[in-house]
Amino acid sequence: MTDHRIIDVKLDEHSIIWRNADVEQERRVAIFDLLEGNSFKPLTDYEGGYAGPYKLVLRVEEGRLAMELAAKDDTLLETVVLPLSPFRRIVRDYFAICDSYYKAIRAATPSQIETIDMARRGIHNDAADLLIERLAAKVEVDFDTARRLFTLICVLHIRG
């Protein structure tokens, strides 16, 4: 029987550079939404035919994203590693637009906020597409799963 989904996700505490209440809220929401509904199918044939569900630990090491995949009994299945260099520009752009969005919430008109939010969602969608493309040879994910994983990748990159 297959169960291609994530049932637990954690961020390596040593990879998180800086956090505040807003960052913690983003992390909590992304994890909650991810666990509520996701599609995550590693393309590796695991010993014993294991086909999910999966536990996931995300960390950054030496400029790469490491995704530790484990079985529901915590047996390590594999570590998927992705270079983060293709994500640098989009993460930077996403942080910039998020900063503009949070500033706009305090002082802009509803129409200005909506315009910035649409741009923010557009960048987030582009990032999800990039993540799907980069994972394609190792893990199949749907669009919503990729969006939530990108949010968690960003949490790992936030600097104070």
Rank of each mutant, 00 (worst) to 15 (best):
D99C: 10
D117L: 12
C98F: 15
R92H: 10
T145K: 04
I116G: 02
V141P: 01
S85F: 12
V81P: 04
A146K: 01
L135D: 03
E114M: 11
Y94R: 09
C98Q: 15
K138G: 07
D129Q: 10
F87M: 04
S100D: 15
L130I: 00
T145P: 04
E114W: 09
E114Q: 14
N125L: 00
I132V: 08
A104S: 08
Y101E: 07
V91F: 08
T109E: 10
K103S: 10
T109G: 07
C98I: 12
G122P: 04
R147C: 06
R121H: 06
V139K: 01
D93S: 10
N125C: 00
E140N: 14
A136Q: 10
L135Y: 05
H124K: 07
K138D: 12
T145E: 06
V139F: 03
V81R: 08
L84A: 06
R147E: 03
I105S: 06
A96C: 07
I113L: 13
L130A: 02
Y102R: 15
D126A: 01
A127D: 01
L84I: 05
I105R: 10
D129C: 07
A136Y: 08
P110L: 06
L131I: 02
V80F: 08
D129S: 12
R134D: 08
R134S: 09
A127F: 00
N125S: 07
L130W: 00
M118I: 12
A108S: 14
L131N: 00
C98R: 15
E140H: 15
A107Y: 14
A119V: 12
V81L: 05
V141S: 01
R106K: 13
I105F: 07
R121L: 05
M118S: 12
I90V: 11
F87Q: 02
H124D: 03
I90C: 03
M118T: 14
F95I: 07
L135W: 02
D129K: 09
A136L: 08
A136S: 13
H124F: 02
I113W: 05
P86V: 05
T79A: 10
F87Y: 07
I116L: 07
G122E: 05
A119E: 13
D93F: 05
A119N: 13
R88Q: 13
R88M: 10
I97K: 07
D126T: 01
I113N: 06
D129L: 12
V81C: 01
S111A: 11
A127L: 00
R134H: 11
D117R: 15
R106H: 11
V81S: 07
I132G: 02
A119S: 13
L135R: 02
P86Q: 06
A96V: 09
